Simulated scan of single mutants.
Amino acid sequence: MKIIGFAIIVGLLRVLSILPYSWVARFGSGIGGALYLIPSRRKRIVLINLGLCFPLKSANERDILGRDHFRQVIRSYFERGIQWYGSAQSLTKRITIESSIDLSDANAPPTIFMDFHFVGIEVGCLLYSTRQPVAALYSPMSNVRLCELARKQRGRFGAEMVERGSSARKVIALLRAGTPVMLAADLDHGAANSVFVPFFGVPACTLTSVSRLAKVAGARVVPFVTEVLPGFKGYKLTIFEPLIDFPSGNDTTDARRMNAFLEAQILRFPEQYYWVHRRFKHRPAGLPGVY
């Protein structure tokens, strides 16, 4: 049965990849809006996260934001068909790039591209790999077949996929060899190699891997964000200036800066951040769980 289910998923993604982008986006958005009407664990997580991060918003405002988020996140799953099976040309024509650094600089220093879990994260990474060699860290899924499919399709334009948690030496070697590494450190992966720093005023278990890898490899840290444009017009990939004095030598200071940067981006389009994740899964000693 598992094999049949996997075959159905692959078949659906392939069908979605040949349909007009606006059709797929609108359909996914509609399904997301409908699913929000049904009580679910994910809806509960979204509303808890929004309540913690936006306490000054009314319950109705948070409900509207939660509905808009469900539309965006379910839509992004349907758009995986285009992202995983569409041509490089079809992806390129749907994305606008705004970069504060020279992406063609052959003498660029070792670079960590610091990404964040917005709904457009997938397409931004894929697009960059069509232009330049790159490596990307990923977290394995519980479903082995689906995990292998995601790893293969995410790396189909030449990106080297590195499993999160594998030897840091490999990542450092890639950086020193001149291959940029993409990683997102804005999820709660547990207390190991993490510190508790504020995220919208709430203590959040935040990875220190970005600053530690940057220090060892002598790498610059360049934030980038992919946003979904309104009106079903595609996406915009924004690559920012490298962070100044990062790493600072203090993991807590660096984690605070990372979260502060992320907060500023979330406020631009809050419905596009992955509120479905349990961002506050682990809590400092003495504080009760929230989920």
Rank of each mutant, 00 (worst) to 15 (best):
T206P: 04
H117E: 07
W84H: 05
L56A: 11
R283E: 06
L149A: 04
L213S: 01
E160Q: 13
P180Y: 12
S99E: 05
A159H: 06
Y128G: 03
R62T: 02
K215H: 13
R164D: 00
F199E: 00
I172S: 03
F78K: 01
F199K: 04
A192N: 13
I74T: 15
S76P: 03
E163D: 02
K2R: 14
E160D: 10
F116V: 09
T226S: 11
K233L: 11
V73Y: 02
R62C: 07
G5Q: 12
D188L: 06
K43Y: 04
N107F: 09
S22Q: 14
Q72V: 12
V24P: 06
R279H: 01
E61M: 03
V216N: 03
P198I: 06
R154E: 08
D63H: 13
G120C: 03
K93R: 15
R44W: 04
W23M: 13
Q72F: 07
M114F: 07
R279V: 03
A159D: 06
E271K: 08
S142E: 13
G218V: 11
G289Y: 00
N193R: 14
G289D: 12
I64H: 11
R131A: 12
K281E: 08
P110C: 07
E271D: 13
I239C: 08
K236D: 00
V144C: 05
T96A: 14
L207I: 09
D68R: 15
S22A: 14
Y21N: 00
L175A: 05
R212G: 02
Y291G: 09
R278N: 10
G33M: 08
F224L: 14
I18R: 14
M1Y: 10
I112C: 03
G231R: 11
V171R: 03
